[in-house]
Design a protein around this nucleic acid. Sequence first.
DNA 1: AACTTCTATCGTATTATTACGATAGAAAAA
DNA 2: TTTTTCTATCGTAATAATACGATAGAAGTT
Lengths: 106, 106
Amino acid sequence: MGTSKKEAFSNSQNRLADLAKALAHPARIAILEFLAKKNACICGDIVEELPLSQATVSQHLAELKRVGLIKGDIEGPRVCYCINQKAWSEAKQLLSQFMVTVKNCC
Amino acid sequence: MGTSKKEAFSNSQNRLADLAKALAHPARIAILEFLAKKNACICGDIVEELPLSQATVSQHLAELKRVGLIKGDIEGPRVCYCINQKAWSEAKQLLSQFMVTVKNCC
DNA sequence: AACTTCTATCGTATTATTACGATAGAAAAA
DNA sequence: TTTTTCTATCGTAATAATACGATAGAAGTT
């Protein structure tokens, strides 16, 4: 057991859950907020901003890349991370629609 | 190791991540969507709607209760699950603000 | 009282996540 | 060429999450 039964759910349910999973760690929230604060791509100074080791930060960046929320462009010796505009819009749309659709009932 | 370093991040970052974690499984998305479709509290027929065992569904409901998104009122032999209006509004506010704040940069 | 119904919890197995040190590789700098 | 800088990946250890059968408890029903 132990394996998530993804195949039993719809594509949109799985996509929404997958996006939420990418946001389900404060370090990844912090990374995205840092990207927002800079309002630019980040080239090489993410590790200093976080209280985690370089290897761990790289893993979190990989998770954000996995769902497509950010992209990394190699630029010389560094990698520049940016919000992936397309996926971010999709996530915003999916999440906000979901939050609005599920309304209170009692 | 293996323990998430929650204490190194802010309260709002942790709360947002925790809410996202509660949404990070298609079964829990499906539960909330089912609540929305019925537009009422659900008393006792959640398990039949999901391709999971009763024990597993109960665990997912407990996770949604843990973050406060739903509440369960005992009503005779059954438990009636409802969206927790207050927590849901808070989640909607936190998530949408976050999604808007993090804008694309390049 | 005995039975049925519904849900939570326990126990357990499996898989996933988190974290970090060490290492490798790529590209600029010396 | 050697060195420095930056990042990804490997290896590993610990914790968390997922799933289900079995069981317990609470509240109606017969």
